[in-house]
Computed example of a mutant assay.
Amino acid sequence: MGLLDKRVLLVSTWFPSERDITEGSFVLADAKNLQKHGVNLLVVHLNKHGLNQTETYEGIKVVRIPLATSKPHSIVKAAVRVLPYIKRSDLLHTHAISSLLPLVLLPFNKPWVHTEHWSGLTTSAHRLPAWKRFILPQVLKVEKRPDVSVAVVEFLARPLRKIRGGKDTRVIPVVVPSPDQIVPRPNGKLTELVSIGGLVPGKDPIMAVETLALLVEQGENFHLTWVGDGPLREEVETKISATGAPVTLAGRVKPQEVPGYIENADMFFGPTRGDNFFTSAAESIVRGRPVVAGANGGHSEYLDPKVSELVSEGSPENFASAIKNVHEKTKKMTEAEIAATVGNRFSADTVATQYMDLYRSLLTH
């Protein structure tokens, strides 16, 4: 059965806009990929920015509806607004747990797919902020509603299955397109590292700075460029000044500029405290860059030990050792050999086929 005559409504609280061009970039990538493969798609962006308009964003038709997830009246208003779009669709596809909040109030009988990304499902409850611990039991109940839930890695699928009981829960990865041509690593006298992510506690940029400072003390010649911004910027800048660590903060960049930063590096370094898919690590591997990262997350499912090292006990000493080990064991490998360790498992065609097969199965039952 073709999907050209079926109307798919994608509802997400995460989607890029003029207010934040990086928010939900992976949801945009999925939407563009599905539309390219013939899916008749409309996006409803339930947004925290107060945007209330219909527009075409990078080729995708988007209806933007304001939603403040902490305000009950806003949730009700958004639910009323989104219901007509659901009724006119043949299949509903939601992204992110916050998108479910208005929908649980609504009476509808449509095939429903939900893709989950929330790191709170894989974070120990005691590590969550107090307000998240309070609402967690109520929020998790809404995960039971969709007909099929999709996790981007098995690491996230496991807690989802516990919540959903016997209901269908599957794994479909994020789209991480391979480049048309792989750019060789710089391989200069200075070994370039890159990290991509917010300057936030979970990404642990302070650990990155301390690791680079230690490498200098050990007589090593490494430099790190950190791509991204966030609330820890001032603290990170202070740490760089105090230690003299060879770290450059590139700040926030456009999504299309990220590949260039990866290609200008010899290796990806992400001292994360916990991630689900860890898109930037996957983006680095498909571009032929080896990876050193924190071990907690779903990236362990696709990172081959031949081209990576995951550090379970995060410390500058352990990360510095891992960086030197990975640099040594991969320096004679070609970029194509590194990229081949993941093959086409994250390609646009692979991911689109999995979603379209899922859509067809729901639409024919």
Rank of each mutant, 00 (worst) to 15 (best):
E301S: 11
G343Q: 07
Y302V: 11
E328K: 11
S347P: 00
E317I: 13
A348K: 05
E328R: 11
A320W: 06
T330N: 03
F278K: 04
A336I: 05
R360D: 14
V292P: 11
R345D: 05
P290G: 11
P316I: 14
F278V: 07
H327W: 15
A282W: 04
S280L: 10
F319H: 03
I323Q: 03
E313V: 06
S280Q: 03
S347A: 13
E337G: 07
F346S: 05
T272P: 09
A348W: 00
E337R: 08
S321N: 12
T279C: 03
T279V: 15
H299D: 07
A322G: 02
K306C: 07
N296A: 10
S315K: 11
A339F: 07
S361H: 03
K329F: 01
P305W: 01
E283I: 15
T334H: 03
R360N: 09
D304M: 11
N344T: 07
R345L: 10
E317L: 12
E317M: 06
D349E: 12
F277I: 12
D304S: 15
Q354E: 13
G288D: 10
I323T: 06
G314K: 09
E313N: 04
D357G: 14
K306R: 15
N325F: 10
V311D: 02
L310R: 12
H299G: 02
R345H: 06
L358G: 08
A336M: 11
A340H: 05
L358T: 06
Y359P: 07
H327E: 09
S361I: 01
E309G: 00
L310A: 10
A281T: 08
G288I: 14
E309A: 08
S300N: 04
K329H: 07
E301K: 12
A336E: 12
V291H: 02
M333P: 06
V307G: 00
F346Q: 05
A320S: 14
A348D: 02
E301W: 11
R287N: 05
S361L: 05
V311C: 12
A348I: 00
P305L: 09
R360M: 05
L303N: 00
A293G: 02
